[in-house]
């Protein structure tokens, strides 16, 4: 097999790159960007599990991200709990809220589900924005503490925070990989293809859809908690639809329903955006049309496009090989 297309080689190279990155580019700003990209990718993986693999486009994902961030914010700032305990609780609380919302939201389908979740997202935003006593309203929450040291490991330096995010990121990618490539993942995909067919195959669509929904909110909450711990300040704007749409863009550009899509899409866009600083506020001038064009011409994004090219090349090779064999046979026969 070609070295460049060998998955194990690529993955090992990427992990090594992630480890040595702070040494190659000892620039604090880039370190910051990379750390954020890890965090966003985790949130996108959550979205992809639900929208990409199970076929339910949730537009409340930014809201769940914000819930994760605010849970850790409220626990540490208002209740003065320790970082790690709060960090553990944040995704769990998000998941619990997700469970309750999912029970109702998943009774709807397709467009209704998208509109329903869009409304849920808005309600989360409005509650965070208006409930001053709990969330600090528009002023937000300031002074989320750093993670406490674990034994000799401290998290004061940006490099340490980078490695922490990288470590959690790797863990998440591994967990998602296992979910997607297992019977659980196959079950999700069957539901995406056709719920009627899945039901006729004895799959409880209700339970599995809820599982996908709750998992997706777990990863959104986890990413939100990481964000809050990293930036250490949160305001209601992180609950706004902009975040949902950013996450959606990362997922679509990378490839909805593909395993590598969230990484490819998030890093690509985050890095491009940083290099086009002047675009910051106008980045959607480029990414908006890109989103629309991709969904028309390559619905499974960059990764889906590459997969298709590779597959076709392999197929052509096989065909020409088969052709050659036939020719040889006829020659031998004649």
């Amino acid at each position: 097999m070609n070295v460049l297309t060998n998955k194990k080689v690529i993955i090992s190279l990427l992990i090594v790159l992630g480890i040595v990155f702070p040494f190659i580019i000892p620039n604090l700003y880039y370190l910051h960007i990379m750390t954020l990209a890890f965090i966003w990718t985790i949130a996108v993986y959550g979205l992809n599990l639900l929208a990409g693999y199970t076929g339910y486009l949730s537009l409340a994902h930014g809201g769940f991200f914000a819930i994760g961030a605010y849970v850790i914010g409220i626990l540490t700032v208002k209740l003065e709990m320790g970082f790690w305990l709060s960090f553990l609780l944040a995704p769990l609380v998000t998941m619990f809220i997700g469970l309750i919302i999912g029970l109702f939201a998943l009774r709807t389908k397709e467009h209704f589900f998208a509109i329903y979740t869009l409304c849920v997202g808005y309600i989360i935003y409005l509650v965070i924005d208006k409930w001053e006593g709990l969330t600090g309203g528009v002023r937000g929450l300031i002074g989320i503490p750093l993670p406490e040291a674990i034994g000799p490991i401290t998290f004061q330096s940006p490099t340490a925070q980078y490695y922490l995010a990288f470590f959690i990121f790797l863990l998440v990618v591994a967990v998602i990989y296992r979910i997607v490539h297992s019977l659980t993942g196959r079950t999700f995909i069957a539901i995406r293809n056709s719920e009627d067919l899945a039901l006729s195959l004895g799959i409880s669509t209700k339970r599995n859809k809820l599982l996908a929904f709750v998992l997706s909110t777990f990863f959104a909450g986890l990413a939100g908690a990481m964000y809050a711990g990293f930036i250490r300040f949160i305001g209601p704007e992180i609950a706004y639809t902009t975040i949902t749409f950013d996450l959606l863009t990362y997922m679509i550009v990378g490839g909805i329903g593909t395993f590598a899509g969230p990484i490819v899409g998030t890093f690509l866009i985050v890095i491009i955006s940083q290099n086009l600083q002047f675009l910051q506020d106008y980045r959607m001038l480029i990414f908006g049309p890109l989103l629309t064009l991709l969904i028309i011409f390559s619905p499974r994004g960059i990764v889906g496009f590459i997969q298709m090219q590779l597959y076709q090349r392999k197929r052509k090779k096989q065909e020409s090989l088969a052709y050659k064999n036939r020719e040889e046979e006829t020659n031998a026969g004649g």
């Binding site: 929208a51 076929g55 486009l57 397709e110 467009h111 998208a114 749409f245 959606l248 863009t249 679509i252 909805i256 506020d281 106008y282 980045r283 959607m284 001038l285 990414f287 908006g288 049309p289 890109l290 989103l291 629309t292 064009l293 969904i295 028309i296 619905p299």
Partner: peptide
């Protein structure tokens, strides 16, 4: 997109929404 799965219409519409807003702001 008329023959595509419904998720694609929605995403495409969101793409246009994001573009027009950025354009107006620009």
């Amino acid at each position: 997109l008329r023959h595509s799965p419904p998720i694609q219409d929605k995403v495409a519409a969101i793409g246009i929404l994001l573009f027009l807003e950025a354009l107006a702001q620009f």
